[in-house]
Design a protein around this nucleic acid. Structure first.
Length: 952
RNA sequence: AGGACCGUAGCUCAGUUGGUUAGAGCGCCACGUUGACAUCGUGGAGGUCACCAGUUCGAAUCUGGUCGGUCCUACCA
């Protein structure tokens, strides 16, 4: 016997373990392959709403295609997440042992990270199981497992040998806190208020400007970088300065003579039209420097404080040993911001500070450290992306890869067509160490390991080699995800079978980080037998961000994060407050967060269960837009689960231990059965169409409406008069029981990809009654619509029935007739088909509308005093025998008449329009005419009623 | 600066190729525990589809513009 109410906790605990133990998640190795790669979450992270959303969609797809008989692989794994993980462990180390990673040394520190991974690495996979994710755990991978080491080395070495990876001294984004280079993508620019300082640079050798001044004025937002200036640039078209090009200025404070150059980069309209050029500390200046062969002077240490002496580098990146770049006394060792103050003060003292203006600027900050990023000259490894990008662009242009929704393709193209070389080296310890070795002269050798280096480059064992200290950008290894997980560089059966993968499900925020790079890497390394590059996936389904109910991004610092597990299990208010207010970056926010939490979740969060959460995500997944997560929504779907639960209880009560035609006994299907079966086929068609279009909202809505509004609201009610009628035939009763249980069983299969637990739980109870067998619903065939069972006649008949019932209920409601009171109904003005339908549906009508009697108005009979409703042209009369509230009924009729009058007017206007008649398609005109006729007929009837009532 | 997306009921959102009386869920109001379900049932109220102009016989839907919001990309020192 089933519990009276749906309790997700009880039913969700067992099934997952059963599925996993039985190996149901593994590919069947039969049928057409279908494969999805999970975007690997951070191995030490925990599940957030974005994951939960994404995993729901992937699991729905996986279960759907698995049930359709496809050979389905959902590949699971985790990412080592270089910077993020290293930072966590460093913070732990600082908090617990007051040590830095340098105190431990590389090897000991890495051991700590591996320990941390072992300790916390199970969290996210445990949570993934809670979500019901049907991933193949036997194939779980990690981006730093042995196979990935192999794949990463292979890719690096081959790209290097193909000249697609190179090393060089370049200006890169440097994080002065983390002491590593980062890629362009890891730099977030933020609006900040700053200043624009205007400095005078005196002209050397007595030269004067056209207007007689002996100095130029340059403006800068970064005064301290002037220590590294190597030129002043003006626009070549600028008449004001044309004669000064080739002359020099003397850099104040440092007293270095630097040239005035002409470069079209300079905007004549902005500021004074003179720009200080600091090639080593500004990306634009770097380009100017390269064009004009300016030396570059690095003035910063890795902390972005001032060096003892500038490091001079030629514009091609080679060391410049000829030029000295002394740094004035008082500056070395100063932090960049202290240096800025001192420079400004020194300029002021020298009388060279022209003015200071407020200036809105975009500060580049590291996405992990939050500090201002410094353009910095260092030796780094790069991927030359141009050659890789071309086929990757073409694949999307040609439709080999399709984005859903399509608009993301533009975003992809825009980025790919303006791609800069990718800086892949990171000065971290946690990650894939770069497979490059150096001898004492600094010559570089790239191979899979030291042994191979020696043989490849014929280096004697006596020559000392040391490996590059740097590791690779995390995204370098994740770019290999689709093929690395399938055993590449070996040409495995899995690689042949499941690659290219079917669909990638991901957020738009990592299209550049991950999706684009996967496409480039995959197409370069994975080829068909005929040599054609393989794409990593055929479709990219891009979903939106999960936001809070107000539309704000969920973040720890705002204290508005919802934990999917809390929505599943529920959480009391106090622990929720504690959870949201602990470990804040800014503890002063705690009070505000606590207040907001207490008001939004006064009762804590109820336990809604995984199925309700998943169904909520599906219903919100419309067109790749961001979704605002409202707890009211999940409550509604928890109620839906309860509805299914209770429908199943009803079905079991009426079928268990009884004959439901399991053994092909003869049975009869009545109108109601034909109707619900017909509606089921239509729903199956809708769901199929929706899933094919990745419209999970439409799929879930179709299922919801079918189960609640058709099956529960109507069919279960329609089954009662039959099952409880002693006079009904055994065949009809059997047909009803059979339909009850089979439609339920089919609906469960239809819903299973979206709500796996409750469907499995109930399916196990009804499968035999429905004539099915098997260990799990997971392996049952997905319902396929049978168009021949779509039954327009049954549908019309039941729609008629519903119309009459609704009319009676409406009268009851409006006339305030107790639902408990059985009433008499008279039908009038009907045609033959109405008469046939009453005949067919009379017993339903009696029971569902709670009638005392129903009959047709006789031909010569005058209609009694009654409340009236129309069903098509037919009148439904509820005689009120003196009890009628005259005013109420007149008001009710008046409302109806007003509505019809408006409709009539609209239609008459339309049909009176010559050009509508002549230009609109005939079918449309005919339809409008029919509508007008219906409206006018109804109007006439209602008016007749009004005059009758008024005449009392 | 360029681009994308969005603006529909109190809230969250659907609305296919232009032809609906513009829908759903939640919330709201009224009534109701009849033998699946009060995590329920029945009925009801609630919309100038942001605004303006255009195309069209016909616009929530197509075009242009205005206003408001979100986001991305690139930035001028």
């Amino acid at each position: 016997m089933m519990e009276k109410t749906y309790q997700p906790g009880q039913i969700e605990s067992q099934w997952y373990a059963f599925w996993e133990e039985q190996g149901f998640f593994k590919p069947s190795q039969q049928g057409e392959p279908f494969s999805i790669m999970i975007p690997p979450p951070n191995v030490t992270g925990s599940l957030h709403m974005g994951h939960a959303f994404q995993d729901t969609i992937m699991d729905a797809l996986t279960r759907y295609y698995r049930m359709q008989g496809r050979d389905t692989l959902w590949q699971v794994g985790t990412d080592h997440a270089g910077i993020a993980t290293q930072m966590v462990v460093e913070r732990k180390l600082a908090a617990e042992e007051d040590k830095t990673r340098h105190d431990l040394g590389r090897e000991a520190f890495l051991n700590k990270v591996w320990e941390w991974k072992a300790e916390s690495g199970g969290t996210i996979t445990r949570q993934l199981r809670r979500m019901g994710a049907s991933v193949d755990w036997s194939r779980e991978r990690f981006t730093m497992d042995e196979g990935f080491y192999k794949a990463v080395q292979e890719v690096f070495v081959r790209l290097y040998d193909d000249k697609l990876i190179y090393r060089g001294k370049r200006l890169v984004n440097w994080d002065p806190k983390l002491h590593t280079a980062i890629s362009d993508l890891e730099v977030i620019s933020e609006d900040e208020k700053g200043k624009l300082w205007h400095f005078r640079y005196p002209l050397a050798n007595g030269v004067k400007t056209a207007d007689g001044k002996d100095y130029l004025v340059v403006a800068t937002t970064r005064p301290e970088t002037m220590l590294g200036d190597t030129a002043v640039a003006v626009n070549p078209e600028d008449d004001r300065y044309r004669d000064l090009v080739g002359k020099t200025v003397v850099l104040p404070v440092v007293n270095r003579e630097i040239p005035i150059i002409a470069d079209s980069y300079v905007d004549m309209e902005f500021g004074t039209g003179c720009v200080k050029i600091t090639p080593a500390h500004d990306f634009n200046d770097y380009e100017v420097g390269k064009r004009n062969q300016l030396p570059m002077i690095n003035i910063f240490t890795i902390d972005a404080s001032i060096r003892d002496e500038g490091e001079v580098v030629n514009s091609d990146g080679t060391p410049n040993l000829d030029m000295q770049a002394a740094i004035p006394a008082g500056y070395p060792g100063l932090d960049r911001y202290e240096a800025r103050k001192k420079i400004v003060a020194d300029f002021e003292a020298l009388g060279y500070l022209e003015e200071i203006k407020d200036h809105a600027l975009k500060a580049p900050r590291g996405d992990r450290s939050g500090v201002v990023i410094e353009p910095y000259l260092t030796d780094q490894w790069f991927v030359a992306v141009k050659a890789l990008a071309e086929p990757a662009i073409k694949a999307v242009e040609d439709g080999d890869i399709q984005f859903v929704p399509k608009q993301y393709e533009n975003m992809y193209f825009a980025w790919m067509r303006d791609l800069q070389d990718w800086c892949i080296s990171r000065q971290l310890w946690w990650g894939h160490r770069i497979p490059a070795w150096y001898n004492d002269q600094g010559n570089v050798y790239v191979a899979r390991n030291e042994e191979e280096v020696r043989s490849k480059y014929s280096i004697d064992a006596s020559v000392a080699l040391h490996q590059d200290e740097d590791v690779l950008d995390t995204w370098f290894s994740s770019a290999l995800w689709t093929f690395g997980t399938l055993g590449w560089p070996e040409n495995t059966r899995e690689l042949q079978t499941y690659h290219p993968t079917s669909v990638l499900v991901t957020g738009f925020d990592i299209i550049f980080f991950w999706v684009a790079r996967m496409i480039m890497m995959t197409m370069h390394f994975i080829k068909d037998e005929d040599g054609k590059p393989q794409v990593p996936f055929k479709t990219v389904y891009v979903h939106g961000l999960v936001r809070d109910s107000q539309g704000a991004k969920m973040s720890k610092s705002k204290g508005n994060v919802l934990d999917p597990i809390d929505l599943i299990d529920g959480i009391e208010l106090e622990p929720l407050v504690t959870k949201r207010t602990s470990g804040l970056m800014r503890p002063q926010d705690a009070q505000k967060i606590e207040k907001a939490t207490r008001s939004e979740f006064a009762e804590g969060i109820a336990s809604y269960g995984t199925d309700a959460l998943r169904f909520t995500f599906c219903s919100l997944a419309s067109t790749g837009r961001d979704i605002k997560f409202d707890v009211g929504r999940i409550e509604g779907y928890r109620n839906f689960c309860n509805k299914i639960w209770n429908a199943a209880r009803y079905v079991l009560m009426n079928t268990e231990g009884q004959d439901c035609g399991q053994n092909n006994e003869s049975y009869e299907l009545g109108l109601a059965e034909r109707w619900i079966i017909s509606r089921l086929q239509e729903t199956e068609q809708q769901v199929e169409k929706a899933v094919a279009a990745f419209r999970f909202d439409q799929a879930s809505q179709a299922i919801y409406e079918f189960i609640w509004n058709e099956y529960c609201d109507w069919y279960l009610e329609l089954s009662k008069p039959v099952l409880w009628d002693d006079a009904a035939s055994a065949e009809l009763k059997r047909g009803t029981r059979r339909t009850l249980v089979r439609v339920l069983e089919t609906a469960l299969r239809m819903a299973h990809p979206f709500m796996p637990y409750i469907t499995e739980e109930i399916w196990q109870k009804v499968k035999e009654l429905a004539g099915k067998s098997g260990p799990t619903i997971m392996q049952q065939p997905y319902p396929v619509a049978d168009a021949s069972r779509i039954d327009p006649e049954a549908a019309a008949s039941i729609e008629w029935l519903k119309g009459v019932i609704l009319a009676v209920r409406n009268i009851r409601g409006e006339m305030d007739i107790s639902p408990a009171k059985a009433i008499n109904v008279i039908l009038a003005q009907g045609d033959d088909s109405d008469r046939a339908r009453l005949q067919a549906n009379q017993s339903f009508l009696m029971k569902l509308a709670k009638l005392e009697s129903i009959r047709w108005l006789a031909a010569d009979e005058e209609a009694p005093m009654a409340a009236t409703q129309l069903v098509g042209a037919m009148q439904v009369l509820v005689p009120m025998a003196g009890l009628i509230d005259k005013e109420a009924e007149l008001a009710r009729l008046g409302k109806e008449i007003d509505k019809l009058l408006k409709e009539q007017q609209r239609l008459q206007g339309k049909l009176g329009n010559e050009s509508f008649i002549s230009k609109a398609p005939e079918a449309v005109v005919a339809k409008e005419k029919e509508k007008l006729a219906d409206a006018e007929a109804a109007l006439a009837q209602l008016r007749e009623q009004v005059s009758r009532i008024e005449s009392i």
